[in-house]
């Protein structure tokens, strides 16, 4: 853990219960979590365990029903109003009436950047996700994976210190996924951003993270937090080292434990 830097996210006894027509659903219960500046934290767990809900609480898109949570030492709402984070949703959520370039420009228009600054950031982030040449296309003219990359470019162009990413690479093929994993690690290393990253892939979680949060459903809760011993600089072939495989095995055990609890 990063004791020396101030906590970017600190949650204690966090709980969220949705009132639905079929009665209450406990999406989160008793979540204690501290994320320090510059950490790369992955959330992994079976479908419905509350990963998205936790990210949405951090982003002030949902209000917790119990416990406390602070983002950068202030309430999530204040942090949101200070534009403290960028969010990549599970689906691309591009506006069909805007070209890819104008979609990436959307947050930049809202925060009121100059045209020149907008153009520079659009060019840089579209290059980063390998979408150069598609600036003038509309989202519906692109494949699902390309749309998702455009939405990542949009979040990166926003350039907040905290990145919340909800299964950003779920719709991509292995090769593109590897490439973007590398790019993301590189970006994180250069900019010292804090990244919260939801994934279903154990290798992806181990490859990217400094810490892996294992969650399990009904009620959604944190069952294990695994510290990575991998170095900060990680070539792709680190995934074949015994150290890497050992961490992956621990994550898998944690997931199994969460599952068997249900039966």
């Amino acid at each position: 853990m990063s004791g020396q830097s101030p906590a970017v996210v600190s949650a204690s006894k966090l709980g969220l219960t949705f009132q639905t027509n079929d009665g209450p659903v406990q999406a989160l219960s008793n979540v204690d979590l501290t994320i320090g500046k510059g950490e790369f934290v992955s959330f992994i767990g079976p479908s419905g365990c509350g990963k998205t809900t936790l990210l949405r609480v951090i982003a002030d898109l949902e209000k917790p029903t119990s416990g406390t949570i602070l983002v950068n030492g202030i309430s999530p709402e204040q942090a949101r109003e200070k534009r403290a984070y960028g969010y990549v949703f599970q689906a691309a959520a591009l506006f069909p009436w805007r070209t890819i370039e104008r979609n990436v420009a959307l947050p930049l228009e809202i925060i009121g950047l100059s045209q020149a600054e907008q153009a520079e950031r659009i060019k840089r982030t579209l290059e980063l996700v390998n979408l150069s040449g598609f600036e003038k296309k509309y989202p519906w003219q692109l494949s699902g994976g390309m749309q998702q990359r455009a939405s990542i470019a949009r979040a990166l162009a926003f350039d907040a210190d905290l990145l919340l990413m909800d299964e950003p690479f779920g719709a991509l093929d292995e090769i593109v996924r590897d490439h973007l994993n590398e790019q993301l690690l590189d970006l994180w290393d250069r900019t010292n951003k804090t990244i919260c990253f939801v994934t279903h892939s154990i290798p992806e979680a181990v490859y990217l993270s400094t810490r892996i949060v294992v969650m399990s459903p009904r009620p959604g809760r944190v069952t294990d937090i695994i510290e990575s011993t991998l170095p900060r600089k990680r070539p792709l072939d680190i995934r074949e080292t015994p150290e890497f495989l050992a961490i992956a095995a621990r994550v898998r055990d944690g997931l199994r434990a969460g599952h068997s609890y249900e039966d």
């Binding site: 949405r56 982003a59 002030d60 898109l61 949101r80 109003e81 200070k82 534009r83 984070y85 960028g86 969010y87 949703f89 689906a91 959520a93 506006f95 009436w97 959307l106 947050p107 228009e109 809202i110 925060i111 926003f158």
Partner: peptide, 25 residues
């Protein structure tokens, strides 16, 4: 859509920008 409105929320976009850039189109 909900997700599009949530997106505008994450940008702390006010009523009028959200109206002009998302809801009216």
């Amino acid at each position: 859509g909900h997700m599009e409105r949530d997106l505008m929320r994450t940008y702390a976009s006010g009523y009028w920008p959200t109206l002009l850039k998302l809801r009216l189109p």
